[in-house]
């Protein structure tokens, strides 16, 4: 494992912790898109089908369990928890996220590295993860007062994707035959979706102003 991969995983972990902190301690999910969280839960469920069949490392298995557990508990909190549910911006979070599932699945059936069930599901999870942030970004644009934790959550998620690209570049030059177009292109698309957010995040940070995205 290289430093970029580790840093990427740690920012991913940090993003989840920031979100859980907000939800669990403040009992609020204001500004958080349930649609995006549901897509992430589907992403991890379809990607980690190998969790009990292919052992890679203890680190790997633990991280998979954390991402699965946290993504489903976040969805549970927003849908079922009495207090958290009340803070959910239902009327603002209107992105039709189910419409993303079918195109991603068809694309995974057509473009994959190997036509097997596990491999197609793994590829599907990559395509879906690439676009899963869209409902969250739309919600952010509609939110007048983006609180710090929400801003940091999205920033950490974007940083995680950026670091994974550096990890792939590093692996490409250090490992023989390391060529994976599917995760690279979907990962690049995913990172580019954050570009706009990053711009305004740094602007607000530089000018010491509250984060606000232009509608």
């Amino acid at each position: 494992m290289n430093i970029f991969r580790l840093a990427g995983d740690m920012t991913h972990l940090a993003s989840v912790l920031v979100l859980l902190l907000k939800i669990h301690t403040i009992k609020s999910c204001a500004g958080i898109s349930l649609k995006t969280q549901e897509l992430f839960a589907i992403v991890f469920a379809s990607r980690y089908l190998d969790i009990f069949t292919d052992f890679i490392s203890l680190y790997n298995t633990l991280m998979k369990l954390i991402f699965l557990g946290s993504s489903f508990s976040i969805v549970w909190y927003i849908r079922r928890h009495k207090l958290v549910r009340r803070s959910y911006d239902k009327d603002q979070d209107t992105f039709r996220h189910y419409f993303l599932l079918l195109p991603c699945f068809i694309l995974a059936l057509l473009i994959n590295e190997k036509f097997t069930f596990k491999e197609v599901m793994w590829t599907f999870s990559l395509y879906l993860e690439a676009v899963a942030i869209l409902p969250q970004l739309v919600l952010l644009q509609r939110t007048k007062n983006i609180d710090n934790l929400t801003g940091q959550y999205v920033f950490l998620l974007g940083a995680y994707r950026g670091l994974y690209i550096l990890n792939w570049i590093y692996r490409y030059f250090t490992e023989p035959h390391y060529v994976h177009w599917i995760p690279w292109i979907s990962g690049l698309v995913q990172t580019l979706l954050y570009a706009d957010f990053f711009y305004y995040y740094f602007e607000s940070w530089k000018n010491n102003k509250k984060l606000q995205l232009p509608a």
Binding site: R5, D9, H12, D50, D54, I56, S57, N60, M63, K64, F67, W122, Y164, N167, R171, E175, P176, H177, Y178, V179, H180, P183
Partner: peptide, 10 residues
């Protein structure tokens, strides 16, 4: 050589 897998990533 077998192609390097990237399923070791999260």
């Amino acid at each position: 050589d077998e192609k390097q897998s990237n399923h070791d990533e999260l």
